[in-house]
């Protein structure tokens, strides 16, 4: 069915301005909840960047000599795989190592220019069965002395702490964000219900003369969507601000061991923005769909 764009625009604007206080309330709630959600994503990504090498239970990394022969490599691999204390020890080859290096040293052109693919030592990422500090230290000391091993790097206390802190921080914020998201969904729902209630006589007439449910629904759903989107766009602005603040903070605290590898890349900002806008759209569409379902039976 043809839906008159003019009609939809007129009705949606009327709905939005008729209940201006409610509209502002829902937009602000959406904004605050999504700003928190966006920041959570940023912090999470930053922490992940800092600890990526030690993800998935990896407690230490065994780097082998750059000029290792395949048979020597096989010997190291066998010693790791046969070790009863080791759960998994996947090998990171030259290609993957170089990729990771490019990522870690992004923006540092001299480093990137001077290092070639074969220059970097390849490694095994080791996940031990027992992750207590003592047993990990024991394994580290053992492999440090093995032939053809260049260096063993262990997940330090700092990284463990950082993971713990960011997880705690993120979980707390996420719970907070979820509550606020529920509140904003309910507010949008309520705003639309109010708008529909204010116009129930019109809706009644529309139904009697044979307007389809979608025709009646679309201006109201659009109203919800616009509220969500305005809140979302504001939250995206906040994510960029937050990125600026975090960069600032990191620059000033470079000496701080805890934040050493903590970095937020533009791809992380993009991800945060996508999450924010995605949630804004889903939230507003779902709540306005729910809101418009009632009033429409008959």
């Amino acid at each position: 069915m043809a839906i008159n764009g003019n009609y939809v625009l007129r009705e949606t604007t009327a709905n939005l301005t008729r209940n201006i206080t409610l509209t502002v309330a829902s937009v602000l709630t959406v904004f605050v909840s999504l700003a928190i959600l966006g920041s959570t994503v940023l912090v999470r990504q930053g922490a992940q960047n800092a600890t990526r090498q030690f993800e998935g239970g990896v407690e230490f990394i065994v780097y082998v000599d750059a000029d290792i022969t395949p048979s020597e490599l096989a010997a190291v691999k066998a010693s790791l795989e046969d070790n009863p204390g080791v759960l998994r020890a996947p090998y990171v080859d030259a290609e993957a190592t170089y990729k990771e290096f490019r990522r870690l040293f992004k923006g540092q052109e001299t480093m990137l220019e001077n290092v070639r693919k074969g220059d970097l030592p390849t490694s095994f990422r080791v996940e031990p069965k027992d992750k207590s500090v003592e047993s990990v230290q024991e394994l580290v000391a053992y492999y440090q002395k093995r032939p053809n091993v260049y260096y063993v790097s262990a997940a330090t206390e700092v990284i463990r702490e950082m993971k713990a802190i960011t997880t705690f921080f993120n979980n707390g914020l996420s719970v907070f964000a979820v509550f606020l998201l529920v509140a904003s969904a309910l507010l949008i729902l309520n705003t639309i219900r109010t708008a529909m209630f204010a116009r129930r006589r019109e809706i009644e007439v529309m139904k009697l003369v044979g307007a389809t449910n979608w025709f009646i629904r679309i201006p109201f759903m659009l109203e919800g969507l616009i509220q969500g989107l305005i809140g979302g766009v504001l939250a995206v602005g906040f994510v960029f601000l937050a990125k600026g603040w975090l960069d600032d903070l990191l620059n000033r605290s470079k000496g701080l061991n805890l934040l050493q590898n903590f970095s937020i890349e533009s791809s992380d900002v993009t991800l945060a923005c996508l999450v924010v806008v995605g949630v804004a759209i889903t939230l507003s569409v779902v709540s306005s769909a729910l809101a418009t379902r009632r009033f429409l039976d008959v």
Partner: peptide, 11 residues
């Protein structure tokens, strides 16, 4: 006019 508009009749 409302009765015609809401059933999508052209202007």
């Amino acid at each position: 006019a409302f009765a015609l508009e809401v059933i999508g009749r052209p202007r």
